[in-house]
Design a protein around this nucleic acid. Structure first.
Length: 644
DNA sequence: GCTGAATCAGTGTT
DNA sequence: CAACACTGATTCAG
């Protein structure tokens, strides 16, 4: 399910692409950190994707970093193409000598090299660049939302942060799969989810920002017939979406978008014509299913449900009176299930008990807002070793406060942009979360409001204290023991859970029993990764706090005896969750907590993983698994081989 | 190349 | 909450 971590998914050959992947290191690279005194360590939350030393023994990174242009397109990679499409500008011999043409864009506006996106990757993507573009999109969108939230109501300048962010990426060249194609889109996997139409746009899955039918007309061919490439079914028309393998899709047009209420008959043109042609040619059509997010009914989720073929088409009279086209699309066999997974989850939630491997309804015994079910459909193990479920983090009495406590005096709720709020000021004036509770940026420390703040408990600046936001379950993995996965779709930046347990002293790490299992340690070496927005895309002065050495206090938590769902999260070298230090006051002291947030959108039934980091006591660089480390089984194509 | 039209968005307001 | 109004971005067609 997870991108790049499913060994069984051999649909896309990524290895070729990744082998020649350009190194994304134009931005300053942090030097390898020197050993630091115990108690603190440099923390680079805004750091660009640095070339980690851990990867040095792979053949790829051992070579000299290739210049951006050296990307070679793997030939013979046309396994998805349903029809030959010419490499567009390969033979524009006519106008190729006169080259002052600036494609309606000033040349300086292309910032794709900042993100390591090559020209070839703009035309044809891969999993890597798709991730980069999607992360960039959401980071800008969150930032624009944050700015809008903080604005006075009178100057609501930035409406529609989704459109704005998408537009910025499109004009700056931060996009991929611009070449339209029939069939699968490289880098996008069946089951991937999206929360905005613009996301489909910037990764080349579906180009129109609104339209439901995307199509193309191959130019230069004798017959210039439009052919459909993808459709979005999300409730705008009267589609039949009951079956997870069959979709009755309604053609476009005929709506009275004007004041006059008259409905017209749909015409056989544009998308309708394209679908007709695709039906006759038996072309594959990508299907994106959109629906309301059950957990967040105001939003829509889009699921890429793979390739379909149009089995038949007909005309009928629509409910509003006009003639409409109908297309019966049937899902092609042999694809991973995507939308079908959603339907299964829905059934389980409705209490349908016929579930394979179901062991326990609620591992948390009511401690959490949602039941945490326990499932094993792999073997006969009946559950993890005993522990006490607790939502909270237990500090020992002797724990020294990290920082003087402080509270804000806001009434009812802290308002973004209100610099009278001391909690906001501690976050450098930025409200850490957007209106719907999504983390905007990683920071050295997020200051949340605490129990003694005057604001109400539902103040938005308590995102990590108000319980789980979606349903999860503990399940038995194939080869990594128990794991944690989500039943609901998760948006990037959503709070996942805190790391609960007992705060312990460093000397106790290996005392409690066997090794450091179920131990979280802030002082390990963690790979930096880029998640925050790129200031240069917003014409913000890049605040140079990105290059400062941020230190956060040492915190070690053992969840061996007491813990919550976080103790079940496995390690991955390409994780979908990251941790973020959060500080708030309790009992007149400020305490540090570790909160986990979704790194990217996570589809239902996907395992949640984060980067365990590497203990500072072990030496990396050896080709075999270093002493004290565990062999990594995350299955990622970027796996470092070991962790711990 | 420019302009306008079409379009299964997304928010905010009533 | 449903209907509505309103502002939009992209791509296509003329």
């Amino acid at each position: 399910m997870e991108r790049g971590s499913d060994p069984s998914s051999s649909s896309i050959d990524k290895t070729k692409v990744l082998d020649v992947k350009p190194l994304r290191s134009l931005a300053p690279v942090f030097p390898t950190a020197p050993p630091h005194p115990s108690g603190s360590f440099p923390f680079f939350p805004f750091g660009p994707q640095a070339s980690h030393g851990v990867n040095q023994n792979t053949p790829t990174s051992g070579a000299i970093p290739a210049p951006i242009r050296s990307y070679r397109r793997p030939d013979g990679e046309g396994l998805n193409e349903g029809l030959p499409v010419k490499p567009k500008r390969a033979r524009k011999s006519k106008s190729s000598e006169k080259k002052p043409k600036k494609k309606s864009q000033d040349p300086g506006s292309d910032l794709s090299s900042l993100f390591g996106i090559s020209l070839a990757q703009k035309e044809d993507g891969d999993g890597e660049v798709v991730n980069v573009v999607l992360i960039a999109f959401d980071a800008i969108r969150r930032r624009l939302s944050q700015l809008e939230d903080a604005k006075e109501l009178s100057t609501g300048l930035i409406k529609r942060a989704d459109l704005k962010s998408g537009n910025i990426l499109m004009t700056k060249g931060i996009r991929t799969n611009m070449r339209k194609r029939i069939g699968a889109v490289p880098g996008i996997e069946i089951g991937d989810i999206f929360f905005f139409r613009m996301e489909l746009c910037v990764v080349g899955l579906h180009a129109p920002s609104m339209g439901g039918i995307d199509y193309m007309t191959p130019r230069g061919e004798s017959e210039e017939e439009p052919q459909a490439v993808s459709i979005v079914s999300s409730g705008g028309y009267d589609d039949d979406v009951d079956d997870s393998d069959v979709l009755i899709y309604t053609g476009q047009g005929g709506n009275s978008n004007k004041k006059d209420k008259e409905v017209a008959d749909q015409k056989l043109e544009r998308g309708n014509l394209a679908l007709e042609v695709s039906s006759r040619r038996h072309n594959e059509v990508r299907v994106i299913r959109g629906m309301r997010d059950a957990a967040n009914p105001s939003l829509k989720v889009y699921v890429y449900d793979g390739l379909y073929k149009i089995q038949e088409s007909w005309r009928e009279r629509g409910k509003s009176g006009g003639g409409v086209f109908k297309y019966k699309l049937v899902r092609m066999p042999g694809q991973h299930s995507a939308f079908a997974v959603w339907k299964s989850v829905q059934k389980w939630k409705e209490g349908n008990p016929s579930r394979n491997g179901f062991i326990l309804a609620d591992l948390s015994s009511g401690a959490e807002k949602f039941p945490i079910s326990l499932v094993n459909d792999v073997d006969y193990e009946k559950g993890p070793a005993h522990f006490t479920y607790s939502q909270s983090l237990k500090h020992p009495k002797s724990f020294s406060l990290v920082q003087t406590s402080s509270t804000c005096n806001c009434h009812s709720a802290c308002v973004p942009g209100d610099l009278n709020c001391s909690c906001i000021r501690r976050n450098e004036g930025d409200f850490p979360y957007t209106g719907n509770g999504i983390l905007v940026s990683r920071r050295p420390l997020v200051h949340e409001c605490g129990p003694a703040c005057k604001c109400f408990p539902n103040c938005k600046n308590r995102a990590s204290q108000t319980g789980l936001k979606f349903q999860m379950e503990v399940f038995k993995t194939n080869n990594r023991g128990w794991g944690l996965r989500t039943l609901d779709p998760i948006r990037a930046g959503t709070f996942v859970c805190e790391y609960a347990g007992e705060v312990i002293d460093r000397s106790k790490i290996n005392q409690n029993g066997e090794g450091d299992e179920y131990v979280f340690d802030t002082t390990r070496n963690y790979s930096s990764f880029k998640w925050n927005y790129e200031p240069r895309l917003l014409e913000e002065v890049s605040s140079n706090d990105s290059s400062e050495d941020h230190t956060i206090p040492s915190l070690i938590i053992s969840a061996k005896k007491v813990g919550n769902v976080a103790r079940f999260m496995n390690h991955s070298c390409t994780p979908n969750v990251f941790w973020q230090p959060v500080l708030y006051e309790e009992n007149n002291q400020s305490f540090l907590h570790i909160a986990f947030f979704a790194l990217r959108h996570v589809p239902p039934m996907t395992e949640l993983t984060y980067d365990y980091g590497v203990s500072r006591s072990v030496h990396t660089g050896s080709s075999s698994t270093p002493k004290g480390q565990k062999k990594c089984l995350c299955g990622s194509s970027k796996c470092r081989g070991s962790f711990g």
